[in-house]
Design a protein around this nucleic acid. Sequence first.
DNA 1: ATTGAATAATAATTCAAC
DNA 2: GTTGAATTATTATTCAAT
Lengths: 90, 90
Amino acid sequence: MKISRHAKILEIIAKYDVETQEELSAMLVKEGYPVTQATVSRDIRELKLTKVAVSSGRQKYAAISHPQKDLSKYIRIFRVRWIWRRTFLS
Amino acid sequence: MKISRHAKILEIIAKYDVETQEELSAMLVKEGYPVTQATVSRDIRELKLTKVAVSSGRQKYAAISHPQKDLSKYIRIFRVRWIWRRTFLS
DNA sequence: ATTGAATAATAATTCAAC
DNA sequence: GTTGAATTATTATTCAAT
């Protein structure tokens, strides 16, 4: 049950602004996942969710944004091109 | 005061496992920043800190890893180069 | 705009049950 | 190993003050 409940949690928080664990557990119950706040607390820890500020002083649960793959090495191509331009065009 | 306190908070959580806001405010006081849990709660929100699980069922505050600036657009240069090679070298 | 004391709201844990 | 009810612990907010 836990695995699919986790998936459902991610689905719910992507779709709605969920402000509390009580709110989330209520939504899960409505979706057919019998669960209480205690379990949701554990789920949130396992899923590494966190509360982030949204507008009007509210907070919502969100997944920690996964740092993007480092692409900075690709920038070197511009330096190469600039050297080429400096060398052959000026 | 807030700015340097924020810096000190980041310094502290990088160095120690801080489990609660009470603990953090106590440390700040010891470092010469007179502050209470209420303010630390606000600071944590502003700094986008979050509790993450560490070993032995504990949690500690940590900074959310900041997603790196999106550099993916630069990759296009490779596609351009490839087209150039296909066009003029083959 | 920032802060603290008090409080309300929320989340984590314990302990028992399965 | 997973879960809920009850509880404890922790955090967020209110409201007043600066």
